[in-house]
């Protein structure tokens, strides 16, 4: 019988090795896999490359992971936020490498990795400093930049419901990078509010089919948690 259920976030991340590339879902707090990030912090792997839209807020979650100096490089679109002081300080000190990628190119590079695309031409970024050194081509009179896929060893994402096969549903804009990151990693781990019995998820409503998901961890209903206090 297939069961992708992990008993804890710690168990789900136990085999992350030093030097791994880790995708972390979320856009701001929406869809941020908070318990998985905390477990990664506990787990201790270092020399990590992190792929995420942002570079952490305040001093918890991804910011804490970066602050622990176990992230050597981050690939993201928008590191600078009002409360990204941990990343800001390390970046200014030259202690973390940054690959800045336009958000849509970041998403498409992740999607391409999961979809078996070798590379793709995109108009986004053409003629800008973020496309310097990259191959370009004119196709049907329009300028394009060649971009390559981003693969990961692990993807840590947050979803709403899962079953034991790893089928996932999401809530509202917390979906963001979850489905594409799940497809782009060798091992995809989803934290979900609740794992439901097989057959309870409407097959028409499944957003990420279980084939893209290796491990699911039940972390409890999100709205009872303290980390939403500031948002409310």
């Amino acid at each position: 019988m297939i069961s992708k259920i992990s008993e804890s976030a710690a168990a789900a991340l136990a085999d992350i090795a030093d030097g791994s590339t880790i995708m972390i879902g979320g856009f701001g707090l929406a869809g941020q896999p908070v318990q998985l990030i905390d477990a990664l912090l506990e787990q201790g792997a270092s020399d990590l490359t992190v792929v995420s839209n942002n570079a952490g807020n305040g001093d918890t979650g991804l910011a804490a992971l970066i602050g622990s100096k176990r992230v050597k490089k981050i690939i993201c679109s928008f590191p600078r936020q009002v409360d990204s002081y941990i990343f800001d300080a390390l970046y200014r000190a030259g202690e973390i490498e940054l690959e800045l990628v336009p958000q849509g190119n970041l998403a498409e590079r992740i999607r391409a990795a999961g979809a078996g695309i070798g590379a793709f031409f995109t108009p986004t970024g053409f003629g800008t400093t973020l496309a310097e050194g990259k191959e370009t081509r004119v196709i049907n009179g329009r300028d394009y930049v060649l971009e390559h896929p981003i693969f990961a060893d692990f993807a840590l994402i947050s979803a709403y419901r899962a079953d034991r096969l790893g089928n996932l549903t999401y809530r509202k804009t917390s979906r963001n990078f979850g489905p594409i990151m799940a497809s782009a990693a060798a091992v995809s781990v989803a934290q979900v509010d609740r794992i439901v019995p097989l057959g309870d998820l409407d097959p028409e409503a499944v957003v990420t089919p279980g084939i893209f998901v290796n491990r699911v961890v039940e972390t409890g209903d999100r709205f009872e948690k303290e980390e939403w206090a500031d948002v409310r």
Partner: peptide, 8 residues
């Protein structure tokens, strides 16, 4: 600190 987001 550079940041581009979805601007491009």
């Amino acid at each position: 600190i550079p940041a581009v987001g979805g601007a491009m």
